[in-house]
Structures are given as C-alpha cells and as structure tokens.
C-alpha cells in the first residue's frame, strides 16, 4: 500500500507541476513604461542601442532651400497697364544692366519693387485721373512677388528723356519686407562716398562706377558717421526706409525710391546727365542677395492692423 501512495503523490506532484508550467504564459506581467517618470530609472542599455535606427527612420527630411518663384518679376519696362504718362504699359524695355555689380539697396530681403501709387493704398495719380486701387498699404499684394517696373510711370513735370511722353517717374519704388516704418535699412550699393543728405534723401557717389545713387523717403536718425563726404562701403547701412514724403509729412507709404544717375548716350548723342533705368540692376542684385541668403526670399505675414505700420520709438 505505501508504494502506491508514494506513486500517487509523485504523479500528483508531476501533474501539478505540469499544470503550473502550462499556465505560466498566461500570467499577467507589468508593462514597461517607454517614458518612465522616475528619473532614477536608467534606460535599459538595449534601448540605447536600438535608438539610432529608430531616429533615422523618423527624422523629417531637410526642406529644400527657398528659391525665387519662376515668375518672380516682370520684364524691364513692363508697367501696370495704363500707368505710363501716355497711358500705356511700356517703359524702357532695354534690359541693359546699368550697374552690374551693384548691391541691392535694401539690406534684407524679401523686398518688392513695384508701383507705390498704383499699389493698394497708393491712391493713384493726378486727383484720380489715374485712379488708384482700393485696399490698404499693408495689403499682402504689396509685399509679394512678382516685381514690376515703375520707371516711366506717370509723373507730370518730371522731365525724362528716356520715357514715352517726356515726363515720368525716374526711379523705382521698392517696398521693404513689411510696412513697418523706419525699421528697414537702406544700404550703400557700392563703395563710395555720401554726396548729399537731405531731409528725406541721401545720395551715394559710387567709387567704382561713378554713378550717383539717389535714395528718397528715408528718415532720421542716420547711422553714426553718415555725413556728406563720408566714405561708405558696399552694403553699409546708410538710412532707414520710411513713409516720409516731405520732411515732416508721412504722406506716402513705406517704400524706398531708388534712382541711378549718370552720363548718358541716347541715340548716339551725349545728352548730359540723366536718371538711368534701375530695374534690371535691381533684378541682378536681388539674385545676388537671395542666392547668398535664401531665407530672405519668402514673403512674410503683413501686420494684422494698418496701425501696426507705425513709428518706432527711438531711445
């Protein structure tokens, strides 16, 4: 009898052992918190070893550098329809770059050469004879591509030998990145000297080209050292771009009026000194600027309110 009892107990123990062994996978085990709260919990070594391949898979691709849109500028001489002095849409279509090595005259991009008076908020010309466009100065359209030439735009009384009708706008209007007043910088287009400073203007004599570059609608205070006769270097800050039409009148929108003056031969004749078409030079110099600074290409959000195009508070 005793051997039978021993055998029975042995079988029972074996059965029970086998039973527990079968149940083992079903036992609930605690989950591993992948992001443990306890700072003292050291991450498993195995996880550290597995991290690199996971990171490689999840890393977002590097976005391509911004590039100028394919249609970022209209051709030289292509004015807004009906805005020339003769109500045409053509200015000087000769694309020759009069100042090929010029630095773009606004320090930072993006910047937008286009019509000030025929852009939104510009008001048009001649008491509505050349009507403006409804909208506000701060409208995003004013601060976006494409660029458009406005040398030869209608201006009576401003004599011009190169433009249809003989009287016209002799420079290019350039809007800086935003409509904020007196915060964007105009810079010297080449090494040279300051040849004139007025209440809203500054001129640079270019030592390389011998041109006079004229900047209008700039505002005090000028940077230290910017005085008549002072030397400047290419790209040096020379004045802040503003909405000054007169010395104490904020009668225009924030923009830089830019001109290039030099001796000219027109139809084989020495016609004296005149304002040369600046648009092509601006195109080339902007390519230089944005090639070096592709982060300065894309337009930025304009201020929400027109009142935000305001005066800075000078210290």
């Amino acid at each position: 009898m005793r051997p039978l009892i021993i055998l029975f107990l042995a079988v029972l123990v074996a059965f029970l052992f086998a039973r527990f062994a079968d149940d083992a996978p079903t036992v609930e085990t605690p989950t591993i918190d992948p992001d443990p709260v306890e700072a003292s919990d050291p991450p498993p070594v195995e996880e550290e070893e597995e991290t690199p391949p996971v990171v490689e898979e999840e890393e977002p691709p590097v976005p391509p550098a911004p590039t100028l849109p394919s249609d970022w500028h209209f051709a030289p001489g292509n004015l807004i329809d009906g805005t020339s002095t003769t109500r045409g849409d053509s200015g000087v279509t000769d694309p020759s770059v009069v100042s090929p090595t010029m630095r773009f005259p606004v320090e930072d991009g993006p910047a937008f050469p286009n019509s000030q008076i025929f852009g939104k908020g510009g008001g048009g010309y001649a008491s509505g004879s050349w009507p403006g466009v409804a909208g506000s100065e701060k409208d995003a359209e004013n601060f976006d591509y494409p660029w458009q030439d406005n040398y030869c735009e209608v201006r009576f009384g401003y004599d011009s030998e190169l433009c249809p009708g003989g009287e016209a706008h002799r420079g290019q209007d350039i809007r800086p990145k935003t409509c904020e007043n007196a915060v964007h910088w105009a810079v010297a287009p080449e090494d040279g000297h300051v040849s004139h400073i007025g209440s809203i203007s500054i001129n640079i004599f270019g030592a390389e080209t011998g041109y006079i570059y004229k900047y209008l609608h700039v505002q005090d205070p000028l940077p230290a050292g910017i005085t008549i006769g002072a030397p400047v270097t290419k790209g040096q800050r020379i004045a802040r771009i503003s909405d000054r039409l007169k010395a104490n009148s904020r009668a225009t929108t924030v923009h830089l009026h830019f001109e290039i003056w030099g001796g000219a031969e027109i139809n084989g004749v020495n016609t004296g000194v005149t304002a040369l078409p600046p648009y092509s030079s601006l195109v080339e110099s902007y390519l230089d600027l944005t090639e070096a600074n592709p982060d300065q290409i894309d337009p930025v959000e304009p201020p929400e309110l027109l009142s935000q195009c305001t005066e800075p508070q000078w210290p």
């Binding site: 000769d94 433009c163 249809p164 003989g166 080209t209 030099g262 027109i266």
Partner: peptide, 12 residues
C-alpha cells in the same frame, strides 16, 4: 563715362 541707353518708344 556715358551709359548707352535705348529710349522707350515715343520718348523725346
């Protein structure tokens, strides 16, 4: 130095 320019049609 004279910069050679072509005037626009209808210019003086």
């Amino acid at each position: 130095l004279l910069t050679v320019m072509s005037p626009a049609a209808g210019a003086a």
